[in-house]
Structures are given as C-alpha cells and as structure tokens.
C-alpha cells in the first residue's frame, strides 16, 4: 500500500477516486518494493511444462509450498485452490473490496490483483499464519472483543489490513484509521467496531 499514492483527505481524494487512479497500475504499484523490483527486473521465467503449467515455490506462513500453476493464476486463487488456505477470501476478484488482503514481505497486498508467479521468493502471510499457535494476534483478539465483524467474510482481509495499518503508523487518530481502513469493505458495516478494534490493538501493542 505504501508504494502507491496514499489517499490524502487534505486534497479531497476520496476512496473511489483513489481506486480509479490506482486500479490501472495497481498490479505493480501495490506490490512491495522487493516484489516490484523482482517483477521489473524480470528474472528468467520458469519454463512451462508440457501441460502449460509452470512450477513455482511460494513461502506462506513460514512454510515453502511447491506447486504447478497456469501463469495467469492469481495469488488469491493459488492460496485458496492449490495450497488449500481458504482463509483469504474472494469478494470481488478485481481489487475493489479488500477481502483478499494478505501480507507480502510485511506489506498489505490485494492477492486478487497479484499473480502468484510474481510472489515467489517473498514472505507471504495470510490470516492462517497470524496467530502464534493458540494465542491470537492482538488485532485478532481486539476484533473478537470489539465485535469487529458480523458475517465474518471480510474479516481476514480487515485484520490483515489492520495489522498493516498499525505497523504503517496510520492508526493515530480515528479519522486516520477510517481512511486507511477504507480499502476493506464490510457490508455488515462493523466499521465503528473495526475502528475500536484497531485502536485497542494499537494500544496493546504500543
């Protein structure tokens, strides 16, 4: 997120404008620097096998996974359908809802707009990898305590965004949290509780 233009309320860029501006370049621009560099310096592509599949290795939640995918497969679909990590959700499949947010090298990324092949070699963290065993991450615990969800479908993405939001230093004021959490839609509208949860987790981890 930090490598793209931040939504700046001072100049009145609303979230939709932000999405419109960003969506054209988002596949590259929203990648962390390490990934972007990899994409731009174009490392030699693995040769497709006879089946048209390419072998890739993804490091997810500290574990290496090897699989064969079509080159066009997104990181989201690879996580869900190949690696069987369905905690990351597909809400829109084109970068407008945030349900698929994961961390790539510590930065929040929309996995539906990221090709899996671009994420090889990066440290990927999904909702399944956030808790330390039985002990919930402080943001997870805060979402439980503050009822930061209803149906729960957007929650993995909200939590991954919230962890990054705090880490980025975008969780100082309520309005700042609202702005920097606005890439994640919650149709049940737990928004006020999500703001409370981000504040509670921020204060606990401070």
């Amino acid at each position: 997120m930090e490598s793209s233009s931040p939504p700046s309320p001072e100049i009145g860029t609303d979230r939709r404008g932000f999405i419109r501006q960003a969506s054209g370049v988002v596949a590259v621009a929203m990648l962390p620097h390490s990934l972007r560099a990899r994409a731009e310096s174009a490392p030699p592509a693995p040769a497709p096998s006879a089946s048209g599949l390419i072998p890739i290795m993804l490091r997810v939640n500290g574990q290496d996974h090897v699989c064969e995918i079509e080159a066009r497969t997104t990181l989201l679909d690879t996580l869900r359908d190949r690696l069987h990590l369905p905690g990351t959700k597909k809400g829109c499949d084109h970068g407008t809802c945030g349900a698929c947010t994961v961390h790539v090298d510590g930065h929040r990324v929309l996995s539906c707009l990221t090709l899996a092949a671009m994420a090889t070699g990066a440290e990927i963290t999904t909702i399944e990898g956030l808790a330390a065993g039985e002990k919930l991450h402080p943001v997870q615990q805060a979402f439980v305590d503050c009822d930061g969800f209803q149906c729960g479908f957007c929650t993995p993405g909200q939590i991954m965004s919230a962890v990054a939001c705090i880490r980025e230093g975008h969780a100082h004021a309520d309005d700042e949290i609202r702005e920097w959490m606005s890439g994640n839609i919650c149709r049940c509208a737990a928004y006020p509780n999500i703001v409370d949860a981000v504040k509670a987790a921020r204060d606990r981890s401070a």
Partner: peptide, 9 residues
C-alpha cells in the same frame, strides 16, 4: 464463533 472468524477457520 468469533475465534473461527478471526483465524480464517
């Protein structure tokens, strides 16, 4: 069911 929802389970 909160724990299941915040852990992706």
């Amino acid at each position: 069911d909160a724990r299941r929802k915040v852990t992706g389970q």
